[in-house]
Design a protein around this nucleic acid. Structure first.
Length: 602
RNA sequence: CGGGGUGUGGCUCAGCUUGGUAGAGCGCUGCGUUCGGGACGCAGAGGUCGAAGGUUCAAAUCCUUUCACCCCGACCA
């Protein structure tokens, strides 16, 4: 491919609204153009990368007997009412929804469980048809709270989603394991360094779930990893041993202290410098919108009797942090946010900053994180502006509220069960960052039951189909590949997914020997099935060509210049993975490229 | 949603405080000299200063409204 045939325009300066490397470089290289927040045009170079990723995705899925299909992006509300997700997604504001000309509500699909379940249930009647796994590669729409970082979090993005259908839980787990291996193969072939982690299943629902994280400091997700045990989990999900709280010898009676202006843990520590942070209990108030149907189903009560909203107070040790995901899951919340100032005043009778467990308004539900266990003689808010209680003991002064793990794992925490079984006593947790490029779930029968997707089993009984679902952010894979592989000069693509395998940089266009040699290199490579890009732009000087070559990061490069008449070229790879700069015969260059591509399965 | 910031040629930005002919660098076009790591000279093209309204003899600049985009936060009590 001749470069001059493309609309190839690069920018010398980085556009001002780009923050992360992948976004900046893609804008500079003309890979993307922004059309609005989280909406991008994918240029020809990027599209080649996306197609390469898709091809790898297809190949690995097909090898695992998955069938590709395509579902509509436009989906009627009725489907989402069947699964019960319409309200939740509209509440979260993530759904692009609108009315058609007849006034019927529709949405642009953020995911496709409803459609695939509808499709499959009409086809599957017998256990003899299962298991089956279907997938598609398609554009998804999500009205993200805050789109950012270019392709990392867009409102429209390319996703591969797969769905497995099985006759039993055990069979579902088998399908899940197969897909886990498929995912490992895909990301390995894409040349990415990644970590699979245990994950929270979020709004999709279901039981087991793992995320595939590309290791990158700019990642939006925190990951808890333990080198000693291979444990790795998303911070939303991770568990650890909570350090023992500082002991308290004194049995002084509970008493009120004047603490005007001290509304934070740090401010309180200044007033009571001898008090350890672990004996300071904060109480945080949340406004909760409940998933009434889920609660009714779980408790066996009538939907009408379940409160739809409420205020919850959660206690937590001063040296620990709450985890709103865990809290939200425990409460069956559709929405969880910090209580407003007014709500705090009504609930506590005090300004924000003095909430405590003693004397809360009756309508407030009190819970606590596990970190409060065994804390004695603690300080907590007084529910009166400018006061806190000191030397409070659970049991003696107040009952200990219901205590659940609502906490966030912290760097240096010991592993749960450290010192028992195979887990070393000093197995500690590190916090790293990553980019979520894949997520796999065991859905169970959540959707099949809600949408009545059943099959007739060998025992003559109708049973719900066991489902799994598996997603890969194709466009995000491209962005994270850059995030992981770049330098100051530009992108450095892994050969497997590079827009072109090789680049011919011609120094002087119009020079007979160079023209002829470049043409031969181009033809030989193309004949061998190699996609090669030939920079034969006439009025671009060598320096600019080198800069552009560095920017777009095609891994293998041949410079054709002064030695062309002697059939010599410069081997000038983008990374030393393909050797170092040297002058070689043109035929050697061709065979090096062909060999490298064969090795990479390209 | 809350807070902060920014909108001026394709890109990066200056000008705004103190109203008075719309600027620079990069990029683009033509000609010439150059030609292995973003060359130089000369001559050009390209902007209703995000939008609407207002104040004024006069608005990129002051006021009001609005839209868009970016960042931070949703971790505090």
């Amino acid at each position: 491919m001749k470069l001059s045939k493309q609309l190839f325009v690069t920018l010398r300066e980085a556009p001002s609204d780009a923050e992360v490397a992948s976004h900046t470089l893609m804008l500079r290289a003309g890979f993307v153009q922004s059309l609005g927040a989280g909406i991008y045009v994918y240029g020809p170079m990027l599209y080649r990368v996306l197609r390469r990723i898709e091809d790898i995705v297809r190949d690995e899925h097909d090898k695992a007997d998955c069938s590709e299909m395509l579902m509509p992006a436009l989906q009627p509300r009725s489907l989402w009412d069947e699964s019960g997700r319409w309200e939740r997604y509209v509440n979260d504001g993530i759904l692009f929804n609108f009315k058609d000309r007849k006034g019927a509500e529709v949405c642009l699909g953020p995911t496709h469980e409803e459609v695939i379940t509808t499709y499959v249930k009409s086809l599957v009647q017998s256990y003899k048809q299962l298991p089956v796994t279907l997938y598609q590669i398609q554009t998804k729409f999500r009205d993200e709270i805050r789109p950012r970082f270019g392709l990392m979090r867009g409102r429209e993005f390319i996703m591969k989603d797969a769905y497995s259908f099985d006759t039993s839980e055990e069979a579902m787990v088998e399908s899940y394991k197969t897909m886990r291996q498929v995912y490992r193969n895909i990301f390995t072939r894409c040349g990415l360094g990644f970590t699979p982690v245990e994950a929270d299943s979020g709004a999709i629902g279901g039981s087991g779930s793992e995320e595939f994280m590309v290791d990158a400091d700019t990642g939006e997700d925190g990951i808890a990893v333990c080198r000693a045990t291979d444990y790795a989990a998303n911070l939303e999900k991770a568990v650890s041993q909570i350090p023992t709280p500082a002991a308290c010898d004194s049995k002084v009676e509970m008493h009120k202290e004047q603490t005007p202006g001290a509304t934070t843990c740090d401010a309180l520590l200044e007033l009571f410098p001898e008090l350890p942070m672990s004996r300071l209990l904060k109480t945080i108030l949340y406004h909760v919108v409940y998933d009434t149907e889920a609660i009714a189903a779980a408790t066996g009560t009538d939907v009408g009797e379940v409160a739809s909203e409420g205020v919850v107070a959660v206690m937590c040790r001063g040296d620990r942090e709450l985890n709103e995901i865990k809290l939200s899951n425990h409460l069956n919340a559709l929405k969880l946010e910090l209580a407003s100032e007014d709500e705090v005043k009504t609930a506590t009778g005090a300004d924000v900053g003095y909430a405590g467990p003693i004397g809360l308004a009756d309508h407030v539900r009190l819970l606590a994180d596990e970190s409060v266990n065994d804390v004695e003689g603690f300080l907590c808010g007084g529910n009166e502006s400018g006061t806190h209680y000191l030397d409070v003991h659970f049991g003696r002064d107040i009952d200990q509220p219901e205590t659940v793990d609502f906490g966030t794992v912290q760097e240096g925490d010991l592993m749960l069960g450290a010192g028992t079984g195979d887990i070393p006593a000093d197995a500690t947790i590190e916090i790293t960052r990553g980019i979520e490029v894949g997520h796999i779930f065991q859905l169970g029968t959540k959707y099949s039951e809600a949408m009545d997707a059943k099959f007739l089993d060998v025992d003559q009984k109708q049973k719900p189909i066991w489902m799994g679902c598996y997603g890969i952010g194709v466009s995000r894979v491209a962005a994270s590949a850059i995030e992981q592989n770049h330098d100051d000069a530009g992108m450095i693509w892994p050969l497997e997914i590079a827009p072109y395998a090789a680049l011919i940089v011609q120094m002087k266009v119009g020079d007979e020997a160079q023209d002829a040699l470049c043409q031969k290199l181009n033809d030989d490579l193309e004949a061998a099935g190699i996609d090669v890009l030939w920079d034969e732009r006439k009025k671009v000087r060598p320096g600019a060509k080198f800069k552009d070559a560095d920017l777009i990061g095609i891994p293998m490069r041949i410079v054709v210049g002064r030695d062309a008449a002697d059939d010599q070229v410069e081997w000038s790879p983008r990374t030393d993975e393909y050797g170092t700069k040297e002058v070689i015969a043109s035929g050697d260059a061709t065979s090096r490229i062909i060999d490298a591509c064969a090795k990479a399965g390209r």
